[in-house]
């Protein structure tokens, strides 16, 4: 047996890589959605001075390459502020903010999709601000936003492959290691691609089911 051959241990290596990719994806998604939602709410209430800042920052994040953002956070910020940052911290920070920028736009249009009349009517009924947000805006905005959000998240799952460039041992990095050891790029990258493909398809499928479930309550069910 040569050292270059595939071994059963490689499967564990691949699973480890997949675990890192999925953990980072889920973590950054949760943080990103929370920040995006917060930004959309701040934007909605027109807190003075916040609107232009939010719009400029999210547009910059959406319109620049994630790779450059990763380099700025991983190499730039530690050099500028003289702090230490591990690759995982830099990756989490960058991908979270990136997801937040896309989520903000979707949540904002979700909130704007709600008729002003509904909010007026809720005010007339004596609901206070937080009640209007929780009972009137949130359910409808969520149902509106789920479809586009699933699309963005499938995309963000693929974006996480870039964190291998700054040295996070995710699925793509494992692919790099196996590729260099076995020198069989066709098999290695096809397998890595297949794993990403299955993950993306599963995510899209689950997202579709959630969307269908949320839309059910929006549909008119008769009396």
């Amino acid at each position: 047996m040569r050292y270059a051959d595939f071994t059963p241990y490689d499967i564990i290596l691949l699973l480890q890589g997949l675990g890192v990719t999925l953990a980072l994806f889920i973590g950054t998604t949760l943080i990103g959605l929370a920040i995006g939602l917060l930004l959309a709410v701040v934007h909605h209430y027109r807190i003075p001075g916040c609107r232009p800042v939010i719009v400029v920052v999210t547009e910059a994040l959406k319109n620049s390459p994630v790779l450059v953002q990763l380099f700025l956070v991983f190499f730039g910020i530690p050099a500028f502020l003289h702090i230490r940052m591990t690759p995982v911290e830099a990756a989490t920070l960058t991908i979270s903010l990136n997801t937040a920028a896309f989520a903000f736009v979707i949540f904002r249009s979700g909130i704007e999709s709600i008729d002003r009349d509904q909010i007026e009517a809720a005010k007339v009924f004596g609901l206070n601000r937080s009640q209007i947000l929780r009972l009137v805006i949130a359910p409808q905005a969520t149902a509106f936003a789920v479809g586009p959000l699933v699309g963005i998240l499938v995309n963000q799952l693929q974006v996480t492959s870039l964190i291998s460039v700054i040295g996070v041992f995710d699925l793509t990095k494992i692919g790099n290691i196996l590729n260099l050891r076995t020198l069989q790029p066709f098999i290695v990258w096809a397998v890595i691609g297949l794993i990403y493909y299955i993950a993306a398809k599963t995510l899209a499928h689950v997202g579709g089911r959630i969307e269908a479930a949320l839309r059910k309550s929006v549909k008119w069910g008769g009396i």
Binding site: S161, L162, N176, N179, P185, W189, I192, G193, Y197
Partner: peptide, 15 residues
């Protein structure tokens, strides 16, 4: 559309 571009790129570059 469902495989990361980086993986596609490595596939071609090394393959």
């Amino acid at each position: 559309r469902n495989v990361p571009f980086l993986v596609q790129l490595f596939f071609f570059f090394y393959g």
